[in-house]
Design a protein around this nucleic acid. Structure first.
Lengths: 201, 201
DNA sequence: CGATGAATTAATCATCGTTTAATTTATATA
DNA sequence: TATATAAATTAAACGATGATTAATTCATCG
């Protein structure tokens, strides 16, 4: 109940509108009760953001990975950007909230991030040989961070109005994948040139 | 004085440690005086972040654009990441602070962002023909958002420890530029093939 | 010197996150 | 069922916050 109420408040007014008393009021309890469910407001926000990441993951699950690396990445990127565009304040909360100085991000939260990253890795997967997991991991991080950056700048309205996030992620995926192919070709040329290219065209 | 004091506080403790009374105490004034210099604390933070962007711009100014597109981009990206790594809390403030619901980012702040983006455009410049300003603008946005995403995830400690921001931005620039060349080549092949490639190798 | 205007402040307000003692509610035992 | 124990909930309070304002100090200049 508390997280549902918090979600409504943040979705409408952003993190600034979120107070313990408002949450409690919305669910018919007093503010003190929240401290039996969460360590503090930071903890509550962390759980709220965890649910947002879950929702993003759920939205990404019905992407088809069978259509090839680039199509899958385009599909993922579009869903990602659409989700952020549909829930700008909830996404801003994910970007803006960080645990205070002493504490670190809980493991279950990092696990959520890792799951999302795994989607990008899965989309990239067919383009790498089994021994290239490190390279694949790095490329997945880069693409995911690129989406994150574009989405963050979009929701923070730090992008000029003449460019759209959709267009940016489309070009990002297209160009980056083209760069991967070029690098892969360059490596093949340098080798014995016996085996075929690992990535699908 | 107020902004210098605020900078020290944020650099050491993050935005959470920044209060009007603490700033005032540090400069020997009372909290009320700050409201004659800034509309409110949000305004003060905005000016602080403006100075941070200025410092980043200053750090980027001594990059050499003569060494070619890719070298210049690598140079820019390294400076960018180093600056963020040296000033994590100040950068986090830039990422985390957004003006409240009603107000929008002031024009002078957007101008700062535009100036930084212009650096990426300038580095990219030699790779585009005069008629391709739109494509150049888009690619600059993408690369800049990529840096922003990597830097943000880095300072928020949302990246696993086995990848470094330095490595990510290096691969981002290398791969993206390779993708740009591939796309450029593909366009040239489709045309009359009379003029030479616009980008420098 | 004295008056006008700006700069500064102390006090105040509403609100915030959080804690705690008291109270209500639920559970289990005899 | 009656009663003891535990859990859940709350109202009140605390310190601190951002912001406002009336009062006061300070500076400038005729």
């Amino acid at each position: 109940m508390a997280l549902v109420a918090a979600r409504k408040i943040v979705a409408k007014e952003g993190l600034r509108g979120l107070t313990t008393r408002r949450i409690a009021n919305k669910i018919g309890y007093s503010a003190g009760t929240l401290y039996q469910l969460f360590a503090d407001l930071d903890d509550l926000i962390m759980h709220l953001n965890g649910r947002t990441l879950d929702a993003l993951f759920a939205a990404c699950e019905d992407v088809s990975f069978a259509a090839g690396t680039e199509d899958a990445l385009h599909n993922l990127a579009n869903i990602y950007i659409r989700f952020v565009g549909d829930n700008p304040k909830l996404w801003a909360a994910v970007v803006e909230h960080n645990p205070p100085q002493g504490k670190e991000t809980p493991a279950w939260y990092s696990e959520r991030i890792r799951s999302l990253l795994a989607l990008a890795e899965r989309a990239l997967s067919p383009a790498y040989s089994p021994g290239e997991t490190e390279r694949k991991n790095r490329d997945a991080h880069i693409l995911w961070a690129g989406l994150y950056g574009i989405a963050s700048l979009e929701t923070a309205r730090k992008l000029p109005s003449n460019v759209t996030a959709q267009e940016l992620v489309r070009t990002l995926v297209t160009t980056y994948v083209a760069g991967l192919r070029a690098a892969s070709d360059a490596r093949s040329d340098g080798e014995a040139r016996a085996t075929g290219s690992a990535h699908d065209r």
